[in-house]
Design a protein around this nucleic acid. Structure first.
Lengths: 213, 213
DNA sequence: AGACGATCCCATCATTTGATGGAACAACGC
DNA sequence: GCGTTGTTCCATCAAATGATGGGATCGTCT
């Protein structure tokens, strides 16, 4: 299956690639149960059986979509890490927030799918937990809040999670939150960025000596 | 429909009440599309048509569940408001976070349903937006961050949203996040509370003079 | 007792949905 | 030309799902 995914990612204009892209959009928008194979097929303008020919059963296609999202997200994190490397922590945080926010607003289905995967217990066992723990630890390292990936303090993990999830929330909830603040899309994105910085930079900067239990 | 809901809420041991409770759990766990009427009926140990007799079609029952959740949430907010009224802002925030976190960890289906409603675009038009804007404005007022409900500054709305959503995330994502920090449930809840306070109290306390563009 | 309404279940229907078999079609090598 | 392989669509199936009709059961009122 991994090879199929690689092929589809490498050649987005191929049938496999087009199906993957459509599935990514639709699964991201309606979730696993809310998306039918017929919806995906119709989007690509092919027959259902053609879809099945390329990707097997629905669950496999969904897993491929999740892997696809995670692959992109991981690449983006690496890209960010390269840019912020060596800068002061405050700048690292600020730039990371800006870049990741921009990226996710361009690919909102990613945030949606991640949130779906968090909160939507599927009836069957979940299977892969898709690298979120690894990503979280990596971000903590990038911010200089841990010595190595295996020794990230729990409260640091939690703070990184809070930041990541907050971005996802504002991206996925745009259609609900944006009317609340009455902004156009561009201004809303700016508002999200400044809010995230406003909330999370002080927390990360204050050296973790705040009263904890 | 509102009267049916009131009756069901008033008498949880009645058939309407039992169905509503089961539906609330299941919709909260699997979402709208992931929950079947047969699953609900089986949970209550009744026939599907009995369920249909009491609540009409599936969508109506789901709307009732959402209203039910919001009703409870609204009551809880009022309860919190009574307790924190008049205290210093720092204490108001701290107590609010503790009480709402405790409440939502006792009723995780609430957080789940709210997040589902945020992010899961249903194929039909959504209908009611279930009071989240009102709740958000009320919380801003409780924290003394606005003069009246109609004049809450956008960045305050965003900060309140960030806090509320963060609670929901940690509650709904427990099964994923708790293993990451390797805690039992009780300790995890404490960790969530201290993280939320650590992140959000400084933000709310620093008088909103942080550099915003 | 008898009537009536409320409640509940069995049997069933129509639609949707995931999945498959088989035929048609094209490209390619021989 | 001819077989092989890969790709696509049409027709169809079986299961799941939401929904309904009709009848059984129970309590209550007269």
């Amino acid at each position: 299956m991994a090879t199929i995914l690689e092929k589809a990612r490498k050649d987005p204009s191929s049938m496999k690639g087009r199906i993957l892209a459509a599935a990514r959009q639709l699964f991201g928008q309606y979730g696993f149960h809310g998306t039918t194979t017929r919806m995906i097929a119709q989007e690509v303008e092919i027959d259902i059986s053609t879809l099945h020919y390329h990707w097997g059963e629905k669950g496999d296609l969904y897993e491929a979509v999740v892997l696809d999202i995670c692959e992109d997200l991981g690449q983006k994190l690496v890209e960010v890490e390269k840019i912020i490397h060596g800068l002061p922590r405050q700048d690292r945080l600020s730039i990371s927030i800006e870049m990741m926010t921009d990226y996710l607003f361009e690919n909102p289905e990613s945030s949606n799918l991640i949130l779906f995967r968090y909160f939507g217990k599927s009836k069957e066992g979940d299977g892969l937990d898709f690298q979120i723990p690894e990503f979280t630890a990596d971000i903590a390292l990038s911010m200089g809040l841990a010595k190595d990936r295996k020794s990230v303090p729990p409260h640091v993990m939690m703070e990184v999670l809070a930041l990541m999830n907050s971005i996802h929330n504002f991206v996925s909830g745009e259609c609900l939150f944006r009317p609340m603040v009455n902004r156009n899309r561009e201004d809303y994105i700016q508002l999200v960025k400044s809010t995230l910085k406003f909330v999370h930079i002080p927390a990360f900067s204050q050296g973790h000596d705040y009263t904890r239990e």
